[in-house]
Simulated assay, not measured.
Amino acid sequence: MDAGGAGTVRPGGRTAAVRAAVLRAAGDILAEQGFGALDLADVAARAGVGKTTVYRRWGNAPRLVADLLVDMAQQSLPRTETGSLLGDLRANARLVQRTLSDPRQGRLFKALIAAAVCDEQAADALHRFYRVRVEEWASCVRQAVERGEVPEGTDSHEVVRAVSAPLYYRLLTSGDPLDEAAADRAAHAVAVAARTGAYVSEPDLP
């Protein structure tokens, strides 16, 4: 994924160490204070690197957010394979639930979503982040089609998005408990719907 000109990283080198420190500092500020408080000078001070380095490499807060999302996509845990659609969807839902209910990560995702609302560059980066995550987990639905668990033509991306949607709803709007039971209900509901053909793509009408 393209970070929007954030620079080349040499694994294990000084460039990688600076990037890691800056992204960690940016994530902390986002989680603690929100996107509106993300100032590059403050990020540099917290990361212990020169302000000039941060401004030269990232330029502005939206580009820094974009690079943070690239890093988060790269660091995300690989999908779980359980051998059944319900098992895979439950694993996905529980991973989302654990992430969003984590004190730091939940606030961070709220800030990232707020940034996407306010800035087009941040929005593009957030969309790319979720495309990567959805595509990785979509393979579990395609495998379910091959096993005959769900009908041919099932839209794998829609299935994965439907699992996490109620969890994000709880995070952002309802304030209902974001617990493992909620994750399991979401996975079960989507698995049942997928088996009935609810996510089969409709053919294009003439």
Rank of each mutant, 00 (worst) to 15 (best):
Q74P: 07
L112M: 10
D88M: 03
D88I: 02
L77I: 05
A45D: 13
P151G: 08
T80P: 04
G106I: 04
R131T: 13
L89I: 06
P62Q: 10
A115L: 08
V96H: 01
L64R: 04
Q143I: 09
R57Y: 05
V141Y: 02
T80K: 12
A61T: 04
R63F: 02
S76N: 12
V117I: 04
A73H: 11
T82Q: 09
R46T: 01
A114Q: 14
N92D: 13
G83V: 09
S76Y: 06
R128V: 08
E81Q: 14
Q97R: 14
T52P: 02
A47E: 09
Q74N: 14
R98P: 03
A45R: 13
R90S: 12
S139Y: 03
R94L: 15
S84G: 14
R90W: 00
A111C: 12
F35D: 11
R128I: 01
L77F: 01
A123H: 14
A122F: 04
G83Y: 02
L64D: 03
T52A: 14
L68N: 05
R142C: 06
E146N: 03
L68D: 04
C140A: 15
R128P: 01
L69M: 14
A41H: 12
D39C: 01
A73F: 10
G87W: 11
F109N: 12
A114C: 09
R142M: 08
G48F: 02
P103M: 05
L108C: 09
L108E: 13
E146W: 00
N60P: 00
D71P: 03
E120S: 15
R46A: 14
G59H: 05
A41S: 14
A66V: 02
L95T: 15
G36T: 02
V65P: 11
L100A: 13
M72T: 15
L64I: 06
M72A: 15
A93W: 02
S101L: 04
L95D: 15
G83E: 05
V96S: 04
A138F: 02
G48S: 03
V96Y: 03
T82E: 10
L95Y: 13
G83K: 03
G87P: 10
D119L: 03
V145Q: 11
G148A: 13
F35N: 06
T80C: 07
W58C: 10
V141T: 02
T99C: 07
Y55K: 08
L85H: 04
N92A: 05
V141F: 06
V132G: 11
A47S: 05
R147T: 05
L108H: 13
G87K: 08
A37Y: 02
Q97W: 10
Q143S: 14
G106L: 02
K110F: 00
H127M: 10
A66Y: 01
A61E: 06
A45S: 05
T52G: 15
S101F: 08
A111G: 13
F35G: 06
E81P: 07
